[in-house]
Simulated assay, not measured.
Amino acid sequence: MTEIDTSPLVLHGRRRSVARLRAGVVLLETGGVRHRIPVAAIARVDVTGPGGRVLTVVVATTPTDSVTYSLTSRSAPAVRAFAEAVRRALPVRDADEPRPEVSAEPVERRGPYLGYAILGALVLTYVLVAVVLVNRGAGEQAVVYWLVGPVLTGAGGTALAGGVRTVREAVVLRRRGITVEGRRERSYEVGTGEDTVMHHTYAYVDALGKARTRSGPQGGADEVDILYDPEDPEGTTKVGHGTAGHLALGLFRLVLGVSTVSAGLWAMGVGTVALLR
């Protein structure tokens, strides 16, 4: 198999959905159904949605009609990499040339993941402790602390993980980043209503001469500097050549995350002490 025929990339999405490119066919499992989409039937592949985390495969059923298949992932770089792999596999076709059909088959459901079982146990414990505190008359303050504690801990953990990732990216880019010129290809809106954010896609050529793109809310000018990690060009890029702001944002998230996690654990501790009395 050549790179055109298959790709080692696996794109995981929400609700156990997954996409693979195997022997000229995109295998998209979502909603309990496995769709076999021949690349010869694909009209185009788009990266859409908030933060560019939605892979959209447009299949031309007739010269005027089309059907779309989509998968939402947590990783925007993974979506972009998978979309590029599919685009490289697309053949050159005439508009009126017959296209192969998409087939679908049910996917056998496996048992729940261990993570779901653990999450369910934690939620059950969370509710049961609150009920016991109320029944034992531990006091409104102890109940509120227990209910708020896990929420703060979860939010702080998310901020902490984001801070670690942002600081790591800043350090990596500062240590081995390469700056090239990027030219804006297009700008588009992400979200709806008051949540609408303008995103920009920049095209650039890396140090090895390979054409790449970078999408996100940063930028807006027709030409910008693109700073990228040559060892991870799809995953670690930013608009602009400086890393001070990126590092400051990461440190802010770290401080916020540590503070919020500490407050959450303290609140849970108050509730636990009241439970053990």
Rank of each mutant, 00 (worst) to 15 (best):
L173G: 08
L71P: 07
P100C: 06
G111Y: 10
A207E: 15
R168C: 03
G120M: 06
T201R: 15
D96K: 07
G269R: 14
A89K: 01
G139R: 06
V79W: 00
L128I: 11
G13K: 06
A170N: 09
W266T: 12
V92W: 00
V58C: 05
V171R: 15
P50S: 14
A19W: 01
D5S: 12
E231A: 10
E97N: 00
V190S: 15
L119H: 13
G209M: 11
A244K: 08
A95G: 02
I42D: 07
D229Y: 04
P77I: 01
T153S: 15
L251W: 13
V45N: 01
G245H: 08
T153M: 12
S66T: 10
G264T: 09
G269A: 08
G157T: 14
S103A: 12
E84A: 15
G149N: 11
S7C: 00
E140P: 02
V33S: 02
R53G: 00
T48I: 10
E194T: 12
R184D: 00
G220N: 10
L55Y: 09
A78N: 03
Y202I: 08
I178G: 03
D222W: 06
T213F: 04
T243D: 08
A159K: 03
V132M: 08
G209I: 10
A85D: 12
R168A: 09
D46K: 08
V123L: 15
P100E: 11
T236P: 02
G264Y: 10
P233Q: 06
D5V: 06
E3Y: 07
D225A: 15
D46L: 10
G250W: 04
E29Q: 13
E3S: 11
R74H: 11
V270F: 04
G156A: 09
T61A: 11
V151I: 14
A117K: 13
V132P: 02
T243Y: 07
R174F: 01
G13V: 06
A155T: 12
I118E: 04
K210G: 03
P50G: 10
D5P: 02
P77T: 07
Y116T: 14
V127F: 13
Y228T: 05
T237H: 04
A274M: 06
E29W: 04
R109C: 02
A43I: 00
V171S: 05
V224K: 04
L254D: 06
A104V: 07
R174I: 00
P106W: 10
G235L: 05
E234V: 08
V54N: 03
R53P: 05
T2L: 13
R44E: 15
P77N: 05
S7Y: 03
Y188K: 08
V144P: 01
A81D: 12
E169K: 09
A78D: 13
T61M: 04
V224P: 01
V261Y: 01
A138M: 06
